[in-house]
Design a protein around this nucleic acid. Sequence first.
RNA 1: GCGGGUGUAGCCGAACUGGUAUAGGCGCCAGAUUUAGGAUCUGGUGGGUUUUGCCCAUUGGGGGUUCGAGUCCCUCCACCCGCACCA
Length: 874
Amino acid sequence: MTYNPRVIEPKWQQYWLEHETFKAGIDRDRPKYYVLDMFPYPSGDGLHVGHPEGYTATDIVARYKRMRGFNVLHPMGWDAFGLPAEQYAVETGTHPRETTSRNIETFKRQIQSLGFSYDWSREIDTTDPGYVKWTQWIFQEIHKLGLAYEAEIPVNWCPALGTVLANEEVIDGKSERGGYPVIRVPLKQWMLKITAYAERLLADLDDLDWPEPIKKLQRDWIGRSEGAEIIFDVVGHDVTIDVFTTRHDTLFGATYMVLAPEHPFVDLVTSDEQRSVVEVYKAEAARKSELRRQAELDEKTGVPTGGFCINPATGENIPIWIADYVLAHYGTGAVMGVPAHDPRDYAFATQFGLPIVEVVSGGDVANEAFTGDGTAVNSGFMNGLSTPEAKKATADWLEQHGHGKAAVSFKMRDWLFSRQRYWGEPFPVIHVDGEAKLVPFDELPVLLPDLDNFAPSGDFTTPLERVPEWINTTDPETGRPAVRDKNTMPQWAGSCWYYLRFVDPNNQQVAWSQEAERYWMPVDLYVGGAEHATLHLLYARFWHKVLFDLGHVSTHEPFQRLINQGMVQGFSYRYYDDNVDDADGGEVRRFQAKHVQPTLEGAEVDGIPVKPRWLAMSEIARDSEGRAVHPDDHDILLEEVIEKMSKSRGNVINPDDVVAAYGADSLRLYEMFMGPLEKAAPWSTEGIAGVYRFLQKAWRLLIDDRAEQEPLKELAEDAGTPAQVRLTALTVKGVTEDIEALRFNTAISKLMIWVRDIAKEGTVPREHAETFLLLLAPLAPHIAEELWARLGHATTLAYEPWPQHDEAAVRAETATMVVQVNGKLRDTFEVAVDINEEEAIATAMSSEKVQSFLSGADPKRVIAKPPKFVNLVV
RNA sequence: GCGGGUGUAGCCGAACUGGUAUAGGCGCCAGAUUUAGGAUCUGGUGGGUUUUGCCCAUUGGGGGUUCGAGUCCCUCCACCCGCACCA
């Protein structure tokens, strides 16, 4: 028998489980290391090869850190509430609880088959009542701080999903999941005041060891800008309109005022003559989908209200308009129109004939808005000031005259925290006489009622409202009739704090003990996809800071170091056909990609609309030249596309198949060998054969697989030849450095070189073989354990000390010295590493080849860095 | 449109602070072994050439700094990812 992962992998997985090899507990004698994966949503499709990429990386680090003496916390769990299970319930009537537990079972089996060193005694399921209880408790804690409130606001309503979505879940006017259209309707919603933490969420990013692009994404999402709030008196009414602007220095150029159509004062300031047009415009704006709004960015629409306000700087009356280019939810929902110095205002003013007054010189406002810095003109007391000076002067003037003050505004909005869905955490809240009251702590968790129809109602009512016996309850305090909250929390709720539950997952009394939290937190390494840059990672940071303020956690930030693994992509094969309606039967014409023109709605060939089609790798045919072609029509060349794996593209690789064919160690190794962890790369079915061969070679290096009992090969009991000593020392040094830097691809290539070369000039010394197995263990743990055992060790190598190398052994005695003439390589020498400059130059000059390039002349200049190189310049 | 990232062989990729570009793997070619195929092992694999050798080119394109550039600077191009009227 040769290397057989199908036998040894289940054996060691069993061993680790039975011996609880990776169970972690508080141990103050060892430094702790908390390494965490973004836990998965257990979808019905099971794991695909993208999941294990990050999991393998964290597992390597976890195993490596254990061997370096760290007490490692490495847990796994399930983010199990969410839309897909509920959608499935809508379609099939299967209770999401059933779907969820089945999916979890599949995920767990698959993850365990890959040999990850999770402490399974800490497994978490966010839908478990024992977990929901504490999610609800945290909501109540947030509520007690006044950070949760209900508001009637226009929300993103998705008719197809029957729910509202957070702004972050709406992409290009369509739902992130499913791509259904989204419209805006006002509904009463729970909001979390994340904006109260904007300043800290921004500032504390500085100290995090996160990828800079992710930090920038969060900074931009938070969107802090400094400017001023300016108060405009409204003519004829006893109200003021506040605006936020970053260009308060242009106040003298504000020639009109624009309110968002949803602004609360619109009705008040509208004159009787204008009332009907304003009403029409408001209605249109409300109906407009996000998609259309964004498609029409260039054309500005709006109507005058007939009302006026007073520019506090000029004292002049300026007209008040409404226009949907002003966003209701940013700043104050009102903007002062300064056409000369803002391109949007310029377009608006030009279109509606509003006056354009230059107040900063430096541009040509007859042609376009000038947005740069310049010198204030037409600006009364500020004339002659530079733009920064003018801003300061305006802020001071506003404050002195009671017309406003310097102010800061954020792009980030409060977090819309309720969903009109079933499969989520119920709010631990009852409503008594229209007042929201928290459910007493000892009644937590508030569990979902059972349901047999999960379909969305389509009329803005929620699934929970259909269970009157659950909705209707009594206030335990007063005995008065009350109703439960009809909404559920969004999927983010459970993932906002799971990393805290992992430190003390079975605690019945508290969400986590202070002792466990102080010992384990923060997470030292967090690995997951970049798609969570602004959602999960911002929400979790927000909750963490709230919990910090309440004294429940001891760190400001939850995740000290973050790595984004790249996507594992797949090869897919594409062509087009003209069956755009997906009709059955009939004549269908196929086209290859090069004839297809992209259009606004899709694609076309010679004016005929066409639709892309994908073929799975297993379905394609090859023509005589080996090109991918359509199986039924070899004239249709298929376009090879590298893209995200998805069912619709037919390019999904199932890890079960890979494990069955090559084993978990090969899968792990290949995922890491594909390239840098952060970089996306396409899965190659051939590529995995290479790492499989490497493991086979490693096996045969130590095992005589031709002999009957597959005995251990003869190993040398001495220290090895100098070359072997150096090779092993170099490998220890290189692999250690690479793992520390998460460069697993180069670590693997160094191990490959070791296997290739160690037996070149003699028998493998036992000592070296053991060192190799320890280096291999984090990456390919099953084979390492098996060979370790066969070398005569009775217990797991999971806690063996990590190999050290001798610096002296790494140092070579000679080096290759390069001689260049005019920067071009002309000769090389083996020289002693301690050669001095003089000797190096003399050696270089002694070369006949070099002399021939010098053609007799003396070099004008000599640059020597012994023992690396000598460069002769003529 | 704005912001960020990436670009090295047929493919995935390596190259520490500027110092022999292309390590390692895949694929391909040849040889060995084998009844054959597969598997395995050995060697080769940028181009040219008069082939134990010699010469030349090359890191998306162009330009620059430097004795020397994949690496630094400018500029252009392609692809990917965010954001998108944020006043």
